[in-house]
Simulated scan of single mutants.
Amino acid sequence: MELRLFYRTQRDLAAALNKLVDSYWQEEIKEQELIEGVKHMHENNMEKLIKNNQFTTVVQQQCGKRRLAVVERILKIN
Rank of each mutant, 00 (worst) to 15 (best):
I29H: 13
K30L: 14
K30A: 09
K30M: 08
K30I: 15
K30Y: 15
E31R: 15
E31I: 01
E31T: 10
E33C: 06
E33I: 01
L34Q: 03
L34S: 05
L34W: 00
L34I: 01
L34P: 01
L34V: 00
L34E: 05
I35Y: 01
I35N: 02
E36M: 14
E36K: 14
G37M: 08
G37N: 10
V38L: 00
K39M: 04
K39Y: 07
K39V: 14
H40Y: 10
H40A: 08
M41W: 02
H42P: 03
E43G: 05
E43S: 12
N44S: 09
N44E: 12
N45P: 06
M46S: 07
M46Y: 14
M46A: 12
E47R: 14
K48C: 10
K48E: 08
L49S: 03
L49D: 07
L49R: 04
L49E: 06
I50W: 10
K51F: 13
K51G: 06
K51L: 10
N52F: 11
N52I: 10
N52H: 04
Q54C: 08
Q54A: 04
Q54S: 09
Q54F: 06
F55Y: 11
T56Q: 11
T56H: 11
T57D: 09
T57I: 06
Q60A: 09
Q60S: 09
Q60Y: 03
Q60L: 11
Q60I: 07
Q61H: 15
Q61P: 01
Q61K: 10
Q61N: 12
Q62G: 04
Q62V: 13
C63K: 04
C63N: 06
G64E: 12
G64K: 13
K65G: 10
K65A: 08
K65I: 13
K65R: 12
K65L: 12
R66T: 12
R67Q: 06
R67S: 02
R67L: 03
R67M: 04
L68V: 00
L68G: 03
L68E: 02
V70F: 00
V71L: 01
V71R: 02
V71A: 09
E72W: 03
E72Q: 07
E72F: 01
E72N: 13
R73A: 09
R73W: 02
I74F: 01
I74C: 09
I74P: 12
L75C: 03
L75M: 02
L75R: 07
K76S: 03
K76P: 00
